[in-house]
Amino acid sequence: MTAPTEGSGRAPLVPNARDFWGGLALVGIAALAFWGARDLPGGRGASFGPGTAPRLFAGLLGAAGALVAVLGLVSRERAPLGYTARAPLLILASVLVFAATIRPAGLLIATFVAVLVASAASAETRWREAVPWAAVLSGACALLFSLALKLPIPLLPGA
């Protein structure tokens, strides 16, 4: 969505990339919301329609986002903006894996797999420890949520 700038060395294109791109992204979200509300009827005069508030808030968000972006051009950054990919993407993957497996495979398997994927997100993970830990966690979660709290969550495949 945004281009991270490399801090050191050459002079950055934008003095405060954090605010500039942050503001622009909000403008983008506002535009998306405005577009999403295009078919909603607005109100007449003082009366509200379903589309009035979304368009109003989206418009204000666009303006505020633009202001933040402009301020990003005139202010200076305190620390460079840097993203990493491993932790965010693997944590996301772990949650998505859970979402995809909970219905078909049940709580035990979904938790086990999600914990393993999540463990891969950390550089400190020791796999000899992580695999049994995943098994312990999925067992404990099954005991707590399915058996003790009796939540209507499938425990095993096909349940």
């Binding site: 949650v95 979402a99 979904a110 938790t111 914990v115 992580a130 995943a134 966690l137 979660c141």
Partner: peptide, 8 residues
């Protein structure tokens, strides 16, 4: 990972 599992 435990926090993630419980949250999911």
């Amino acid at each position: 990972p435990a926090v993630i599992a419980i949250c999911c």
